[in-house]
Design a binder for these strands. Structure first.
Lengths: 158, 158
DNA sequence: GCGCGTATACTCGGATAGTATTTGTCCGAGTACAGGGGG
DNA sequence: CCCCCTGTACTCGGACAAATACTATCCGAGTATACGCGC
């Protein structure tokens, strides 16, 4: 069970854009250059964030990406679900109903099976934890030099 | 981010074996038949559970699988980590240190980045939740008929 | 009855193939800005 | 001076290719039980 790399990319980009929210939008080229990421694929991930309403993109020259809202209102979970999808990691295939186990099925399967209940509960705890942190939190927690360095590089002309 | 199907299989098998712990070990053929699962692949997953010390297997005729310990002492998390590996779903690739961002690196990266801290915390909450439920819990929560039906089928000769 | 050989029913582990998902790249099209030339 | 036209720097979206998981199957080998056969 693995989470895509795009999540790390997306979160770092959100933090970065949070620091530069008072400036012009930042192009993919700049963001990819800062983190040394494949530009085209990063674009795809950011597009997913835009579709979820987390980022906005402006086309044309001097266009680029910026946060769609204040960093305090974007949670880590928002980013994760935008990039990884809203479906749970554990998907109950109801194997208890298949094969011989499902033959003489009575009321037996009216209730969801305990396994999926436990799994759902665990993912809920996970989501809750992710939802309790915002981009603003991440910005505040980062070393002070990081924001400055990024301003210099990413708002530099060229 | 998706969890392998083997987790559902493994948990159902553990519950089933818990119900049959007083009987002879159960063969793969029986288990696969009960849930209608691919026999050879199920075997692989159960072997992973055996390697983790959750199941024991006995070779030879009338051999098969059984729980290695009392169901109260096997947590759902034990099963999940045995099947999915112990590594976190989120793996921090430290992209903050790459590209232009890593050029003038000072003490900046001495502390782990806030993103991985948040992610780790969330997975911890997830694991904690999984660890709080045991196979015995799942057995108790299942409809009473299920245990009976399984005894009939799986301990039946042939 | 006892011992031996054989058939049977399992597991073990490696090798391999198929499929789905993730990651990465490419290209044509649209959009905004900037600058230059003609009116 | 103003308008249009073109070049440039972006994004959008689809199509495609590569890499990596995940799922599934196959096979030779080992091991314990069951059974029958000869002694």
């Amino acid at each position: 069970m693995r989470m895509g790399e795009g999540v790390e990319w997306g979160l770092h980009c959100c933090v970065t854009l949070g620091w530069l929210s008072d400036e012009a939008p930042v192009s993919i080229r700049r963001l990819a250059g800062w983190f040394d990421l494949p530009q085209e694929y990063l674009k795809k991930r950011l597009q997913a964030l835009a579709k979820a309403g987390i980022l906005t993109s402006s086309p044309g020259a001097r266009g680029g990406w910026s946060l769609a809202g204040p960093p305090e209102r974007i949670t880590v979970m928002d980013v994760v679900t935008a990039l990884e999808g809203a479906t749970d990691a554990f998907r109950c295939a109801e194997i208890r109903q298949r094969g011989e186990g499902g033959r003489g099925a009575g009321q037996e399967f009216a209730h969801p099976c305990g396994i999926s209940v436990v799994m759902r509960g665990a993912e809920l705890a996970w989501r809750r934890e992710l939802a309790s942190h915002t981009i603003a939190d991440l910005m505040a927690r980062s070393p002070s030099g990081a924001a400055r360095a990024r301003r210099n590089y990413l708002s530099m002309p060229g």
